[in-house]
Design a protein around this nucleic acid. Sequence first.
DNA 1: CAGTCTAACTTGCATATTACAAGTTAGAGC
DNA 2: GCTCTAACTTGTAATATGCAAGTTAGACTG
Lengths: 122, 122
Amino acid sequence: MNKERTSDVLEWRSSCPIASGLDVLGDKWSLVIVRDLIQHGTRTYSEFLASPEGVSTNILAARLKWLAAIGVIEHVDPERSARNNAYRLTPAGLALRPVLEELGRWSQRHLKSYNPDIVDIL
Amino acid sequence: MNKERTSDVLEWRSSCPIASGLDVLGDKWSLVIVRDLIQHGTRTYSEFLASPEGVSTNILAARLKWLAAIGVIEHVDPERSARNNAYRLTPAGLALRPVLEELGRWSQRHLKSYNPDIVDIL
DNA sequence: CAGTCTAACTTGCATATTACAAGTTAGAGC
DNA sequence: GCTCTAACTTGTAATATGCAAGTTAGACTG
């Protein structure tokens, strides 16, 4: 977890919405977590770990905490203990679907020559 | 520049188009550079540096090299020397516009409570 | 209801990436 | 040829990430 993200008040690079979106989600793992939730609805900690990308446990824990802090995800049952308490997207998280759809579409069109294994999803 | 990105053959985390897109563009700076080019058409090295986000020179040079390597940007005049030779988007780079538009839209709707300064662009 | 199992983390440390400051290079203008 | 400066490169410190191991607490087992 970096300094910006741990501090109570975020430090934004600019007033640009794109840069601000990247301040919050611009890393290799956050949107992969969101993708898992879009695909599966809910997901437990160990289910996230089982995704083919292979996130490490400390990064996953940090990102889940962060995504919950900014209101993108939440526990399915907030009262319940952590064990088997799945995460799900909030409305704000669900609203990321078009972003992922466009990114996926772009990759399928423009990255297949580099990664021929790319499949169709979403 | 990290190991994946300098190696001739990229190491992809999975066959997922979203994860692959993030393998290539999933950092804090690549899409900011693309945004500058969408807004301004062409942009020189020092113009990128002048953007409010304040990228550092080594990161900028590395990202420009990388984005050119994957065919997202190119020099306006490939024959010309580096001095004042602007960069522009390739067709593949231009195709990222919908991704940025959706990201910007999401930020405006869901990040304004955290960063009230966010403005409208694109 | 003590003991075991295991999901969900946390911690420590090596490696990789980013930031900041300073230095280098080469083409344009005089 | 000298100066100026755009476009980098290099060195090094600060952060973040990856990997392995350890911890905790609720669920299940006998």
